[in-house]
Design a protein around this nucleic acid. Structure first.
Length: 870
RNA sequence: GGAAGUUUAGCUCAGUUGGUAGAGCCCCUGCCUUACAAGCAGGUUGUCGCAGGUUCGAGUCCUACAACUUCCACCA
């Protein structure tokens, strides 16, 4: 093995895995494979650009699970894919066109789509390259794209079915309109932000000349669409005015004053202008009173011909001009500063306009109920649980989903209209004639579907729906979905609903929510802040393993997470440690003969490390079952670094360097076995380096091995070695405190008080003590030589005074020990003297504490005696 | 206007059913000891946001408060 792992080998290793077919489910090779099915669908990244560090976290988490389950013997399927991201991609392409001085109209629908597919080839491909560099072990042979042929079929099938059932319908309703993207948006696609604006108090004169009524509004420019003014029926100020006509300012129109419960007496002036075409509430009020909405805006956000001289002005310019004009006419009562919450397009951040428009909708009522039910029953488990509350809240307040978009890039709505009789047909394949009148002149709906429509089918469309495939049968519902919190509405909830509706089942059993990745200052990474990190840059510099490990270590489930290059530098030390341990094992092997592992020859240290290994594996399994990735990783870390590298490697050195070939061969065999188990343990998180090391020793591939397994657990030996480790630490401490040079070899004395068993144990550890703390010999107490005593878990021991000297240092040390022991005794005593504790605490605990107290007490006694002797 | 999360060592963060506070980095001391100086052996560092409560016992459960963050919401 070289001095360091060469990260350039990662590509070669990935190719070997790929060529070996390791990313495919075992049932692809052996239909009778009996392992449990474990499946995941990858949240498909948008083809708008390249992956960022959040994607790296998401996919590392999934890959960690996939590789772990695979090594557990599961039949693992992980399906990768990308999303066409209708509106987001279209915005990007239009931007690109703009640089060439072109618009999408210049290209025409067909030309534009050609561009879009070329875009997909370029960026979709780049995403796959990035995922591979990260080491993702997904099954590329099943790779899906939301607009590929199979997924198109699924979309058509689902659309038709829901249309036939009346759940998808077309109608005129108030929707969110983005004047920049020129399309309708769903409620979920609107982001609300507080904006500083004004509250305009406008005078609406009574038609009969009896003064005026003051109406307060935040959107004066929509007054051209006013159909009436409303007041609360209980509001006595207006009782005698209701029914009168008002002159609509800046127009020659007259509108009535009506009353409606919706109006709040105490807000504003108590009088509200009702503009049904441009406000969801007004729409309701208008409908109740039989008014027809009047649309006053064009689709680009400019005012239309209804607005007279303001026609053609952008809505904001119109507002300015209108207010000036009204002021001049004395129709502005006052203007107050006001903060309004305004909706913005989630893609281009233009402020959206509520507008009445003819769109396609999906009725979500029953599906939402089903979605709530499966979560409440625990069939779909959301981790961490708090996120489930967000999910429930949204489903409880769900409204019909606006699914049509006035875009070109996306699934075109399979609705066809007869040019003759206007009949609407929804078909999976283009009809040739009208089903009603037989006319052959038909045209297809111009709109495409919301990009999240195809995403909602992802859980089963990726497994072959609408065909009844083996994959669907085996892998649906999927096991775990790993995703981010911000798409819980867009995606997670809708997948649950559509899977329930179409497949009559849940899409996944568990949802693991990743936190948001922030930069080292805690700021959210985003393009606008320019603090995003390209995973490829990190991988090129430090290797994929370093990135993967750093993303998962210390990252609590669902918590936001700070990422920085500094953290990578800290965390990659662990990878270096694993590599160096491998070098040690290699060295030992090269210096020993062949020996197979003989369970009967295990010494206490071997038994100790196997017990530790066993515990670690059990803990890891528990954490992995709970999807507690952070805990699993930290458990791996402490076993490898603390138990194996710091302790076992040092404890086994006398044996792997032994002059006795049998002893040496055995020791190396154990060392090798434990280390190989470490490689297996770590492979799911740092697959490249572990594979590289594994192949240095083996002809097989690590990815195909089963997970780490201990050959046993040995309670007694574990305790014994724990005592020896404690003794070593104590000797180091004493040597240091007495200023005994590390290089000086000294004797260790077993005092008479020490039990026979413990004395034997210390004697048996002579080699280990020699190697670790430079103890020349271990012997029983010799009364003729003065000794410096100390106490540890294993009993009372001593060093010869003439070998270590320095009375002052010794006194200092003993006093320090005594203080420590006494403070613990005080704590225990206060507890044991409390009758409540003795009576009510578990008996085992009370007993344990009593024993501990006794032990400390006797230790304190002997330390005091030693102090006196000084 | 609702709701959620966070608050633990100088910094970044772990802390599973309540049972004597942990890691990494930083800092100090001693070591280039034949796996590893991206290291080893030691050491220092905390009224676990504030105030109550439940309990023999609370970082952990309950209540109120504060600060920060986020999500949801049609009051013109």
């Amino acid at each position: 093995m070289d001095k360091n792992f060469d990260i350039n080998n990662e590509k070669k290793i990935y190719k070997a895995w790929l060529d070996g077919g390791y990313f495919k489910p075992r049932t692809d090779f052996d239909a009778n494979y009996s392992g449990e099915n474990f499946s995941m669908i990858m949240p498909p990244p948008n083809i708008t650009g390249q992956l960022h560090i959040g994607h790296a976290l998401n996919n590392t988490t999934q890959d960690f699970l996939a590789r772990y389950r695979r090594m557990q013997g599961d039949n693992v399927l992980w399906v990768p894919g990308t999303d066409h991201a209708s509106i987001a991609t279209e915005v990007k392409i239009i931007d690109a066109l703009k640089k060439e001085g072109l618009t999408k109209q210049d290209l025409g629908r067909e030309g534009f789509l050609k561009r879009a597919w070329a875009w997909n080839d370029k960026f979709g491909g780049r995403i796959y390259t990035q995922l591979q560099a990260l080491g993702t072990s997904c099954d590329w042979s099943r790779c899906a794209f939301t607009m590929d042929e199979k997924r198109q079929k699924a979309v058509l099938k689902v659309f038709k079915r829901l249309y036939d059932e009346g759940l998808i319908y077309r109608g005129s309703k108030i929707i969110n309109w983005c004047p920049c993207c020129k399309t309708a948006l769903s409620d979920a696609e609107v982001e609300h932000e507080d904006e500083k604006s004004s509250f305009w108090y406008i005078r609406y004169p009574y038609a009969d000349g009896s003064g005026y009524l003051v109406v307060a509004t935040t959107r004066p420019e929509t007054l051209f669409g006013d159909v009436c003014v409303a007041v609360n029926p209980e509001d006595k100020r207006f009782t005698d005015k209701v029914g009168k006509m008002l002159k609509l300012p800046a127009t020659d129109k007259e509108i009535p004053l009506i009353s409606d419960e919706y109006v709040e007496k105490d807000f504003g002036t108590g009088a509200v202008k009702i503009t049904p075409a441009h406000d969801p509430n007004d729409y309701e009020v208008g409908a109740r009173h039989g008014f027809t909405p009047i649309c006053v805006m064009n689709l680009d956000g400019s005012m239309n011909e209804i607005c007279g001289k303001y026609a053609g002005l952008d809505r904001m310019d119109c507002r300015k001009r209108l207010i000036e004009d009204l002021k001049a006419e004395g129709l502005i009562e006052k203007i107050e500063p006001y903060t309004v919450s305004k909706g913005h397009c989630y893609r281009c951040h233009t402020s959206v306009e509520p507008m009445v428009s003819k769109q396609w909708f999906m009725n979500m009522d029953d599906m939402a109920k089903q979605g709530l039910k499966v979560e409440e029953e625990g069939k779909v488990k959301i981790i961490p649980n708090r996120v489930a509350k967000i999910y429930r809240n949204w489903l409880n307040n769900i409204r019909d989903w606006c699914i049509s978009r006035q875009l070109w890039w996306g699934h075109r709505i399979p609705a066809y209209y007869c040019d003759e009789c206007g009949n609407t047909m929804v078909e999976e394949s283009t009809p040739t004639k009208c089903s009603k009148c037989g006319n052959t002149h038909l045209h297809q709906d111009e709109d495409v579907l919301d990009t999240w429509f195809s995403s909602a089918l992802w859980a089963f469309s990726t497994l072959g729906y609408p065909e009844k495939t083996k994959d669907l049968e085996r892998f649906f519902p999927t096991s775990v979905l790993v995703t981010a919190q911000d798409i819980i509405f867009f995606w997670v909830a809708r997948m649950v609903m559509l899977s329930g509706k179409i497949e009559g089942n849940i899409p996944f059993k568990k949802v693991l929510i990743n936190g948001i990745v922030r930069d080292d200052e805690g700021k959210k990474m985003s393009k606008s802040s320019n603090n995003g990190v390209d995973p490829i840059e990190i991988i090129d510099k430090y290797g994929a393993d370093s990135l993967r490990f750093s993303l998962l270590v210390g990252n609590g489930t669902g918590n936001d997470f700070r990422f920085s290059e500094t953290k990578i530098l800290e965390d990659r030390k662990f990878i270096n440690k694993v590599w160096n341990a491998g070098k040690f094992v290699e060295l030992c092997i090269s210096q020993s003969g062949e020996a197979s592992l003989d369970k009967n020859k295990l010494n206490i240290y071997d038994k100790w490390i196997y017990t530790k290994l066993n515990t670690a594996i059990v803990d890891i399994a528990k954490s992995m079952n709970n999807l507690d990735v952070c805990q699993a990783v930290s458990r791996m870390y402490s076993f490898v670094w603390d138990d194996f590298c710091d302790n076992y490697v040092e404890l086994c050195k006398p044996y792997v360097y032994s002059q006795n070939p049998d002893e040496r061969n055995h020791a190396v065999a154990v060392l090798k076995d434990v280390y190989f188990n470490i490689l297996k343990m770590l492979h799911p998180i740092i697959p490249f380096i572990t594979e590289e090391i594994w192949q240095n020793f083996n002809k097989t591939m690590l990815i195909g091995e089963s997970y780490a397994k201990s050959i046993g657990k040995f309670k007694k030996e574990e305790e014994q070695v724990q005592k020896i480790i404690g003794l070593i630490a104590k000797i180091r401490e004493v040597r240091l405190s007495l200023n005994v040079p590390v290089s000086k070899r000294i004797s260790l004395v077993i005092c008479k008080q020490t039990s026979e068993d413990d004395a034997q144990l210390v004697l048996s550890a002579a080699d280990v003590l020699s190697k670790n703390v430079n103890i020349e010999k271990v012997e029983a107490q010799n009364d003729k030589r003065e000794a410096v005593k100390f106490v540890c878990e294993i009993g009372e021991l001593a060093l010869y005074k003439d070998e270590v000297v320095d009375t002052e240092k010794e006194r200092e040390r003993l006093n320090k020990d005594l203080a420590k022991i006494e403070s613990e005794m005080t704590l225990l005593a206060s507890r044991l003297n409390n009758p409540n504790f003795v009576e009510r605490a578990p008996k085992e605990l009370v007993k344990k504490e009593k024993e501990r107290y006794e032990f400390l007490n006797s230790s304190a006694q002997s330390i005091k005696k030693n102090l006196n002797n000084l």
